[in-house]
């Protein structure tokens, strides 16, 4: 099987479908056209840039470049985790919770996958390292964002109950147990749904991509299964870590609820 290379005309044809959607939106007076056009243009620029960068990195195949890319991905994901919460924890400590939870899980699990499971040579082989980190990080980021959002919102809305438990002498671990477990669950839901739907309701993107690129379906499926396990583990551990760190930050050293550490929504 050969890869049918896409010409600019092919991409333009695909874009014309979105253009058609925009025209329909304008006709029925739905004010989404500008956002759709802007985000589509942004997507094209971002992906072209990434394509160019990856091409250069693949050619260089140096560890320093890959480390730099991983660092950029992690910092952007850390920012994104904060942006996805209604009342994130203020300042650097809020940002660092997401960052630590992602580095401690997505990064570690990617390294394990490269060195122990796939055993690429060299271990940082960019063709594997970057897409793997990207997929694991993307999902972990979503999970951590949801978990922390549930945690901070839950503390805000449930402050009376949290304090009522502290008042009756519950320690932090007991007072926050339910909130922590619900937040963990919130972070894991997309992953649980993904596992349940895989292959039946949705064909995972990576597997589809590999099949389009000519990989035999059974090989593509094996990769997909591995990825799913990696994503599930990273998201689960990531949410767990983020919730533990976040819950600690909601209180001070005298176990007082510190909602003033949460940002007020705009």
């Amino acid at each position: 099987m050969d890869l049918y290379s896409l010409t600019p005309l092919d991409l333009a044809l695909a874009a014309s479908l979105v253009l058609l959607l925009g025209v329909v939106q304008v006709l029925i007076g739905l004010g989404l056209f500008r956002t759709l056009a802007f985000n589509s243009a942004r997507m094209v620029v971002q992906l072209l840039l990434v394509g160019l960068i990856l091409q250069a990195v693949f050619a260089a195949a140096s560890l320093a470049w890959i480390a730099l890319i991983a660092l950029v991905m992690l910092s952007l994901a850390g920012y994104e985790v904060t942006a996805r919460q209604k009342r994130p924890i203020r300042g650097w400590s809020g940002y660092s919770i997401g960052l630590m939870a992602m580095s401690g899980t997505a990064l570690v699990i990617t390294l394990v996958a490269l060195t122990v499971i796939i055993q690429t040579d060299p271990w940082y082989e960019p063709q594997y390292a970057i897409p793997l980190l990207g997929m694991i990080l993307g999902n972990t980021m979503t999970g951590i964002g949801l978990a922390l959002n549930h945690l901070t919102q839950g503390a805000w809305n449930g402050r009376a109950v949290l304090e009522a438990r502290l008042i009756l002498g519950h320690d932090l671990s007991k007072a926050t147990r339910e909130l922590r477990s619900e937040s963990m669950r919130a972070g894991m839901i997309p992953t649980l749904n993904m596992l349940a739907a895989a292959g039946v309701i949705s064909l995972p993107g990576m597997m589809t991509g590999q099949i389009l690129a000519g990989t035999p379906p059974v090989e593509a499926v094996k990769y997909q299964i591995m990825i799913m396990f990696l994503i599930a583990a990273a998201t689960g551990f990531g949410s767990l870590l983020a919730v533990q760190l976040g819950a600690k930050r909601l209180f001070d050293q005298r176990e007082r609820l510190r909602l003033d550490r949460l940002k007020t929504p705009k």
Binding site: L166, I167, L168, G169, H170, D171, L172, R254, E255, R256
Partner: peptide, 8 residues
Amino acid sequence: MPPSQWRR
């Protein structure tokens, strides 16, 4: 005193 003991 640890806070939970104090509050008890």
